[in-house]
Design a binder for these strands. Structure first.
Length: 494
RNA sequence: GGGCCCGUAGCUCAGCUCGGUAGAGCAGGCGGCUCUUAACCGCAAGGUCAGGGGUUCGAAUCCCCUCGGGCCCGCCA
């Protein structure tokens, strides 16, 4: 890569030639252009082989994808965000000198503007008969091969811009991501939730069990952590009387990247005062229903999307965590098992989690082993044992359980919701229990949060879910990297 | 952290099993062609075979190490 390729030399010499002729290969602007869809629309009324008799002028701009020369006529495909449009270059329109000049100076990948009139080719392709071309930026590097594009996963991630410029499908996918996020926002807004932004940097990352990224503040002279969840600040806002809040933002966990985990991911959490987890379930079901209808509209050409998003249409099956686990594993009386017994059962199921893990971890491992592989549709798993989380409220009728549900898609967990624990004294006790059982200082005891609860947290339900995973599920993508524009990669070796 | 697999021209790939000194398509160059759309036809050009080391008369090919990536497992919500 140190030496530029012969291709680049060739393209640079074209830039030099351009400048030598007093023309700017990288102009400042190109006002007045319309989308290629406007020209296609004007072509809709024309029969094959016909130029627009009114000669209505159009100005378009975009990237050249392919150039097909036929001696005294040539075709070029111009692509903008609205789609692709065929440019028709004729010696008769441009004159011999200009025609030859353009064909020798232009390459696939160049950004060009074109002025001309609508026409439909004899083969029926909507086209623009070009009167004037303008070079808007010369591409020194050639685009990927026109048919296969960029296929190497690493290259698609490291140079996402090349993936995007060469793949309309990729652009459509990330466009759909933004549109679906907009749909999520509208849904929560319409339901009366206030979108808020809480701090990414703080002295203690809490609300989940995960290793944080640590950074340093020059101002305070102390270490700061990047948030691992937004749960605790959002509940403080409920204490503050905001009643219904949600946040969509990046959350950071200092872990490996794999097909369902990314060290930085987009999380949505929502908290709703005076409601419980049954209400939250209904709210989420409505959201899933809406997204499952929207996704195939956004990507109508992808059959995988239609199939995957159909899984997000209600009604959803419900699984009782304890009953389902007992049924599938043959274990009886699960809730009365000691930590040692749970550890032995987890080991027997093939788990290698450390000796000193908590009861909750062993229960999670058992569920993961016996139940998760059997989940083949979007499923609500409900009423987990208390030991699995310190933040959910005890179940009002099932002993030894909390009011919690998790949503599972085939292959991964999507969402986690509770009727929140609001009693400050029990919250403090539960924090201490987890801390004591695990002896792990990553479960930082957030005293200020307990103090906030002492001012009074109304009855509240809350949910958190990974937006990237939701998109994977809706769009049928097997890897989280497919739905994140710039996933973390190691630096390339020197 | 463990296992398996991959890295060849700007891009997409073949060659590696069984060692003999690198091949195609696209893109680019030159020439031809007034309706193509993965346009077509002809000619010429294009390579630190990821990097380093080893075995060998000879290494893209076999062995070892390093880097980057993929998949699975582990860890981690």
């Amino acid at each position: 890569m140190a030496d530029e390729s012969a291709l680049e030399r060739e393209r640079r010499s074209k830039v030099a030639r351009w400048r030598a002729e007093g023309r700017e290969p990288y102009p400042y602007s190109f006002p007045g252009r319309v989308g290629t869809d406007a020209v296609r629309a004007a072509c809709a009324a024309l029969p094959p082989g016909q130029d627009d008799p009114a000669h209505t002028p159009f100005r378009v701009a975009g990237r050249l994808r392919a150039i097909r020369q036929h001696g005294r006529t040539a075709f070029a495909d111009l692509e903008d965000r609205a789609g692709e449009l065929q440019l028709l270059l004729r010696v008769d329109e441009l004159g011999e000198t200009a025609y030859r000049g353009w064909l020798s100076d232009l390459d696939p990948g160049d950004l060009v503007g074109a002025d001309g009139t609508a026409a439909v080719s004899r083969r029926g392709e909507p086209s623009l008969v070009v009167r004037t071309l303008t070079l808007l930026a010369k591409a020194i590097r050639p685009p990927p091969e026109k048919f296969h594009g960029l296929t190497d996963v690493e290259e698609r991630i490291r140079r996402r811009y090349v993936d995007l410029l060469s793949s309309p499908e990729s652009r459509a996918l990330f466009g759909a991501r933004t549109a679906l996020l907009g749909e999520v926002r509208r849904y929560f807004d319409e339901a009366g939730f206030l979108e808020v932004e809480t701090a990414v940097l703080g002295s203690v990352a809490g609300g989940a069990a995960a290793a944080p990224f640590v950074t340093r503040s020059n101002y305070t002279g102390s270490n700061l952590q990047l948030r691992i969840a937004t749960e605790l600040p959002l509940k403080r806002l409920i204490v503050g009387g905001l009643e219904k809040v949600y946040e969509i933002g990046k959350t950071f966990r200092n872990e490996d990247l794999d097909s369902t985990h990314s060290p930085e991911f987009t999380e949505l959490e929502a908290y709703w005062a005076y409601a419980d987890y049954h209400d939250m379930r209904r709210l989420l079901e409505g959201l899933f229903d809406r997204l499952s209808r929207r996704a195939p509209e956004l990507l109508p050409d992808d059959p995988a999307v239609a199939k995957a998003s159909a899984l997000f249409r209600p009604p959803f099956p419900t699984m009782d965590f304890v009953e389902e686990l007992e049924r599938r594993s043959g274990i009886t009386d699960l809730l009365s098992k000691s930590r040692e017994e749970l550890r032995a059962l987890a080991r027997a199921a093939g788990s290698t989690v450390p000796e000193n893990s908590s009861s909750g971890t062993f229960l999670d491992k058992l569920f993961e082993h016996y139940v998760e592989p059997a989940i083949d549709r979007v499923t609500f798993v409900v009423d987990h044992p208390i030991a699995t989380t310190p933040l959910a409220r005890r179940h009002r009728s099932k002993a030894g359980r909390v009011e919690r549900f998790e949503v599972f898609a085939p292959g991964f967990e999507l969402a986690n919701a509770y009727t929140e624990l609001t009693d400050p004294d029990e919250q403090e006790k539960r924090f201490r229990e987890q801390l004591g059982e695990r002896g792990d200082d990553r479960y930082a005891f957030d005293e200020d949060f307990v103090e906030a609860l002492q001012y009074g947290l109304p009855p509240t339900t809350g949910v958190g879910f990974g937006v990237d995973r939701l998109l994977m599920g809706l769009l049928g993508k097997p890897s989280i990297k497919e739905v994140i524009l710039f996933p973390l990669v190691r630096p390339r070796s020197a």
